[in-house]
Amino acid sequence: MNKEIISIKNVKYSYETATVLRDVSFQVKKGEKVVILGVNGSGKSTLLKVLNGLIFPSEGEYLYKGERITEKKLKDRAFNKKFRKEVVLLFQSPDSMLFNPTVYDEIAFGLRQLGEDKKVIDEKVRYWADKMGIYRHLDRPPFNLSGGEKQKVCLASLLVLEPKVLLLDEPTSNLDPRSTGWFIDFLYELDKTVITTTHNLGLALEMGERGIVLSENHTVIYDGCLKKFLKDRDKLIEANLIHIHKHRHGKVEHSHYHTHLFFD
């Protein structure tokens, strides 16, 4: 449980016109469930892409199990195979991940690439389809399913590889309330290192115990107990995660900051 699996040190990342990550540093231990919070445009999705080795920091370094992840490192076939199998990313829009003709092929895609035996592939695909409740859709094209079902196909396609680290980019943004409930329960039971991004404060506590908060200035302004952060009004204002809300009590109107959060 205590072994460090991910280490980000002073990472900076810029697109053509703007810097989206500034001096970002943190470590993640094996088995931890971390929630990355921040408003839209704070750099959450970019950070996950760095962690998945899709883009590379312009400054600073990213270490996975002590190995520095660079473009050159991922050109090493054996390492790339290990890394892509162990660190997987669920994209915000499931549509961007689905391209195989059937749900079965979609889930089997990664395993086929690994050169697994047909029988093993079949067993694993059926196991995960059953676990996700999408068994009846195995022969259907994934594109015509509902948002929640597409999300489940994507998750099955990633989990079938038995990854060590699961990166989830705003996983509940396309889900209806019932699917969101299912997803939270599923995440709770998942025995893996999970890093989830969200700006939904109401769900954040259900997704992990530790919070890393990115400001609008693209720096980390908090790293620690999520529950403590959600009670810290100054930090919430700094992250622009709460807003001033108007109220009426009879004829009296007043306004104050609101979080829409309930603690036990």
Binding site: K49, N52, L54, R77, N80, K81, R84, K85, V88, L89, F91, Q92, S93, D95, S96, M97, F99, F109, G110, Q113, L114, S157, L158
Partner: peptide, 18 residues
Amino acid sequence: KYLTDFRFALKSRTILKP
């Protein structure tokens, strides 16, 4: 944005050359 996500998703899920 969609096109970039498609490209990244394929790269992310590709273990060997497709």
